[in-house]
Amino acid sequence: MKVACTEKSQILGSKVAKALDLPLVYTQFKAFPDGELYLKTGAPDEETLLVSSTVDNQSLIQLLLMIDACEGSEITLVLPYMGYARQDKRFNDGEPVSSRAVARALSAGVSRVITVNIHEDSVLSHFRAPAEDITLAPEMARWIEGLGCDDPLILAPDKGAAAFAAEIAKNGGWETDHLSKTRLSGEEVRIAPSSVDAEGRDIVITDDIISTGGTLATAAGMLKDGGARSVHAACVHGVFASGGFARLRAAGLASVASSDTIESAASTFSAAGMIADAIRK
């Protein structure tokens, strides 16, 4: 087996190859003057482990080209971050179910698919190859342990993310809760833990994805006003659109961390170990 990766997943792909003690295939990427993409990868093995986050349209096209380039090899596709996965329903007539369209396109030519904390588990059913989702909850818990906080409170940003926060908290034996909004007036809303007092506590807000960070930044300010000792944020997929990372730091968060499913300077912990464990099974 060899490991190949697309351009936006070079670092994670290299880490996965190292964790599995497998050779990494070098791939050349370029664009033609008309914007069409080109790649040339090394000779595939009988089996290929293809690591590719589809963080934008270019990386999605690169992945489709890479799958075709590896034709004849048995491909295990690892999608650390799957773009278009958040639209899993048709809300208005004429809309595509984007997650289904992308999953079907990426299924052609692959024998197995592994995702990482996909936003909706139902998306897995759209792949036309066996698909499974793995969680980075243990890695996030290890990062939280490294903060050196005294009995941190693990908070989900809403009730829908409470199960993931509880999964992280279980790894460290910590208390967990979710944030809730209380409308105080027509214009004033209070955001606070649903049932646990944050005063004097070190707070870690966890989620699968941070996009713009707007709600989280507002919540962090209210938690600090409510007496929290410190507020941190951690997510699996750090999108940080529209200046989201800077917004969170400007809001006074003590730290903001994400994994390397989307590679950036905020990538503080890695998905490589959990991906390697899934491949070894």
Rank of each mutant, 00 (worst) to 15 (best):
M1W: 11
K2N: 07
V3A: 02
A4G: 12
C5Q: 09
C5K: 01
S9G: 00
L12F: 11
L12M: 04
L12T: 01
G13L: 08
K15N: 07
V16L: 09
A17R: 14
A19M: 11
L20F: 06
Q28D: 13
Q28S: 12
F29Q: 01
K30T: 14
G35W: 05
L39R: 06
K40N: 04
A43Q: 12
D45C: 07
E47K: 01
L49Q: 02
L49I: 08
V55A: 00
L60W: 03
L60N: 03
L60R: 02
C70Y: 01
E71A: 12
S73D: 01
S73K: 03
E74N: 13
E74T: 14
I75L: 01
L79T: 08
L79H: 04
A85E: 15
R86V: 08
D88R: 13
D93E: 15
P96Y: 04
S99N: 15
A101Y: 04
V102Q: 07
L106N: 13
G109A: 10
V110Y: 03
V110G: 03
S111C: 08
R112M: 00
V113K: 05
T115Y: 00
V116F: 01
V116N: 01
I118K: 02
H119T: 12
H119C: 06
S122A: 15
S122F: 02
L124N: 03
R128A: 14
A129W: 09
E132D: 02
T135I: 07
L136K: 02
E139G: 11
A141G: 07
I144K: 10
E145Q: 14
G148W: 06
G148I: 05
C149R: 09
D150G: 11
D151F: 04
D151T: 13
L155M: 08
A156V: 03
A156F: 04
K159G: 13
A165Y: 10
E167Y: 05
G172V: 05
E175C: 09
D177V: 10
H178N: 08
L179M: 08
S185G: 14
E188D: 12
I191R: 13
I191Y: 11
S194P: 06
S195T: 13
G200A: 07
I203E: 10
D207R: 02
D207F: 02
I210W: 01
G213A: 07
T215E: 10
A217Y: 13
T218A: 15
G221V: 15
M222D: 03
D225H: 12
D225Y: 10
R229W: 05
V231D: 08
A233M: 06
A233N: 09
C235D: 02
V239L: 15
F240L: 12
G244V: 08
G244E: 01
G244T: 06
A246K: 14
R249Y: 12
G252M: 10
L253T: 10
L253Q: 05
S258K: 14
D260P: 04
I262V: 07
S264C: 11
S264D: 14
S267V: 06
I275V: 03
A276F: 12
